[in-house]
Design a protein around this nucleic acid. Structure first.
Lengths: 216, 216
DNA sequence: TCCGGCTTGGGAAATTTGCCCGAGCTGCCA
DNA sequence: TGGCAGCTCGGGCAAATTTCCCAAGCCGGA
């Protein structure tokens, strides 16, 4: 790879929406120095593609169905600690950003960013630098000042379950997606309610929406 | 517009993520007959752009921040009943699909669809046909076997109870506010779910929010 | 090494849901 | 004038879920 594209940056594109991938591909390749060498629409394929192609940068949407995108980050980093992973998603909750960085991401940009910002973030992480879009920096800055949001008390699994629940998924659907027993999902549901102080499922949905975890 | 592009289809692109818009633009324009004549990232701009450019098709992501995308559909259709609106989002709940169609959408495709399916859906709605992706058709078909209709099937009391519930009130609180027994409120709750086709409380909250019944 | 927190689930009582029912009202239409 | 239809209100009861409490494995930090 390095011999072939000594002057370019090879990119692995991971997103579960085909047209979104196709859009990225065209945007990135129009830059000249960016080359999309593989695509994946789930965490498992992303890992396989990473092993096969060893790209300079992984552009990863962590809000994929099934296994957590954070899991994918950890898997890739476990195999290759030098991997540069740029998380690219529409979620902009501080807890998610921090979780991504602590899982080993090199950068975090939101889909609200200008394409030019995404492209320059790719170049930054390819150079080994840390990168984040302006809105993310702003959110992290605010977060570090104020006492955290209600979501800060939640663990990674709890956040994922809350996201799927607030998105309208049933308990069984969540259990299937995450390979958990229904009972465990119910327990998480209860735990999330007590931790956040929500007395009602509706309050939980509103909380998730207010924290940017789900769009309505 | 029609004189200039007699053989093509003019498209207004509405999505709140710049890079997603840019990706769509490139995918669509590579088709030859599709021309993106304007973009917007919110409902208000979408309406202005529609008035200014009178596109053949509006490709609209209804999950935008701020004003509901359904509102945007209604606004555009109110001004120009001949407008062709193709909803393009990652949500695939039956209630949302039905709400979009009853708001005046001509088609509904999910972001999980292949780009070619989206492109052919655009051509279909431009010809005045109705279009939906396979997964949406599947969901609607399943839904139509058992379910009732949308929100306007609800009586006054049901609407009021849904509003309070989606606002975060507990069953007891609603019962107290409305001077009803808890059992009656529970029965309404159940009735509302069956009438709207919502399988989950969370879906009910999203439905209420999407219909402007509650603000989040 | 031990402690604390996360993750995963079992158990059991309390509560809610799902779906059936009837009854009182209103309005409408023949 | 009768009758039908639809909304409102609630009881009943089995099935499901929620609410807690508990335990065990795992992992990272002190």
């Amino acid at each position: 790879m390095n011999e072939i594209m000594a002057t370019g940056i090879s990119v692995l594109l991971v997103d579960d929406h085909p047209i979104v991938r196709q859009g990225y591909r065209r945007v990135l390749e129009s830059q000249g120095d960016l080359h999309v060498v593989a695509e994946a629409d789930n965490a498992a394929d992303a890992y396989s593609a990473f092993k096969a192609r060893d790209p300079d940068v992984v552009l990863l949407d962590i809000s994929m169905p099934g296994a957590s995108g954070l899991e994918a980050i950890r898997n890739i980093r476990a195999r290759s600690p030098r991997a540069r992973i740029l998380v690219f998603t529409m979620h902009n909750e501080a807890v998610l950003v921090k979780a991504a960085f602590s899982a080993g991401a090199s950068g975090f940009v939101t889909k609200s960013s200008e394409p030019s910002a995404v492209v320059s973030a790719i170049r930054s992480v390819a150079r080994g630098e840390r990168a984040m879009s302006d809105d993310i920096a702003h959110i992290l800055a605010e977060d570090s000042l104020s006492a955290g949001s209600a979501l800060d008390q939640l663990g990674e699994r709890e956040i994922e379950i809350l996201r799927q629940f607030a998105g309208g998924a049933t308990t069984e659907q969540i259990a299937t997606h995450l390979n958990l027993s229904v009972k465990t999902v119910q327990n998480y549901h209860y735990l999330i309610k007590t931790k956040t102080g929500a007395r009602t499922d509706a309050q939980l949905v509103r909380l998730a929406a207010n924290c940017g975890l789900t769009k309505i």
